[in-house]
């Protein structure tokens, strides 16, 4: 079996479009959960707001691409306000319950047959991503090479000798845009977190009554964190929808939110780079396990009597779940979290 291929594939994925979706979703969650302590269990719905906001604007309403982006962002803001206003004055668990329910409602509405003429029902929508890919500044037949980076008919390849990363014409564009977004968002977030504003968020995470007693409008700060994190979630939704050139309601299940949490905790919550590292590691592990097992089965390294290729998916998720449990036991702070911070009893 071809380990080099498996490794190259996994590495390609570890910094690829899907990883960027996880990273962005988790960055939004980091602001809400990592820094402010808000339990948003509906990040998938914020991503859906972005994805469907864009798709519906462009396909159903015939609006230009950029209007779709604006509408997607506004939709995420509106949802944050709708969920936040009734819950953010209450105990933390109310937001958790309401966001989980809202995410499911959003998904059900998206797949409802009543509106399937507009939304495509459970099949979802396509045909909104062309304007995005028309922006690609190089042609499909572009070919060049520079040191270990090369482009062959519009496709990008990075050759490290023992392994090689390869991206399609479109994926390359998604990655350029996606990584630029991640970089810009992380820079802004670093500035925000290391400001007195960020200090108030951390204070709220530690003890919101104490912060209130110091004259801060805790509700307003929580709302700001919820809205900003939701907007970043919608951006994750854009990247998700554009990278696949379609939206489907069943992609936005609670599992999706759960993976954002896995990524965040794996990388280290309340750390600027935590979500990016977490997403890279999570998606690398997922791919190396999945690809490795499939390769091993097809090369008869693992006999089909033990496991067949249809069982690989569930097994990988079982292994990742197990890994997550072990992580929480042996390294609860994640890759780059601060162990010392975890030693205090926060409540």
């Amino acid at each position: 079996m071809d380990w080099q291929f498996v490794f190259s594939q996994a590495l390609t994925q570890a910094i690829g479009p899907t990883m960027l979706v996880y990273a962005l979703g988790a960055i939004g969650l980091n602001l809400q959960f990592g820094y402010t302590g808000l339990l948003n269990f509906g990040q998938a719905a914020f991503a859906a707001m972005g994805a469907y906001g864009l798709a519906l604007s462009v396909v159903a309403m015939g609006l230009p691409f950029w209007w779709g982006i604006v509408i997607g962002l506004l939709a995420a803001c509106v949802m944050a306000l709708l969920l936040g206003i009734p819950t953010l004055r209450l105990r933390a668990d109310y937001l958790a319950i309401v966001t989980i329910a809202a995410a499911e409602i959003v998904r059900r509405i998206a797949r409802a047959t009543v509106w399937s003429d507009t939304t495509g029902g459970s099949d979802g929508m396509r045909g909104f991503s062309e304007p995005f890919f028309e922006m690609i500044p190089w042609d499909r037949d572009t070919t060049w090479s520079f040191l270990f980076v090369s482009m062959d008919n519009g496709r990008l390849a990075v050759d490290f000798g023992i392994f090689e990363l390869q991206y399609s014409y479109r994926d390359t564009w998604v990655m350029i845009v996606g990584w630029t977004l991640v970089a810009v968002i992380l820079v802004v977030m670093a500035f925000l977190i290391h400001s007195p504003w960020g200090r108030v968020l951390k204070g709220i995470r530690e003890d919101e009554e104490a912060v209130r007693s110091l004259g801060k409008n805790v509700f307003a700060y929580k709302m700001q964190a919820l809205v900003l994190g939701g907007i970043i979630g919608a951006i994750a939704g854009f990247v998700f929808a554009l990278s696949r050139a379609n939206v489907q309601p069943d992609a936005f299940t609670t599992d999706f939110t759960f993976y954002f949490y896995v990524v965040l905790i794996l990388g280290g919550a309340a750390r600027i780079f935590g979500p990016v590292l977490g997403a890279a590691l999570f998606w690398f592990l997922y791919n190396i396990l999945a690809q490795g097992l499939i390769q091993a089965i097809s090369a008869d390294v693992i006999p089909p009597s033990v496991i067949d290729s249809t069982q690989v998916g569930p097994l990988v998720f079982f292994l990742l779940g197990l890994g997550m449990v072990l992580l929480l036991i042996f390294r609860p702070q994640g890759l780059i979290g601060n162990r010392k911070e975890l030693m205090f009893d926060v409540r």
């Binding site: 007195p196 200090r199 951390k202 530690e206 110091l214 205090f344």
Partner: peptide
């Protein structure tokens, strides 16, 4: 109600 995972100075500044 000390803000545990913040430094003493941060507690003051907030």
């Amino acid at each position: 109600k000390a803000l545990s995972r913040m430094t003493v100075l941060e507690n003051m500044l907030i």
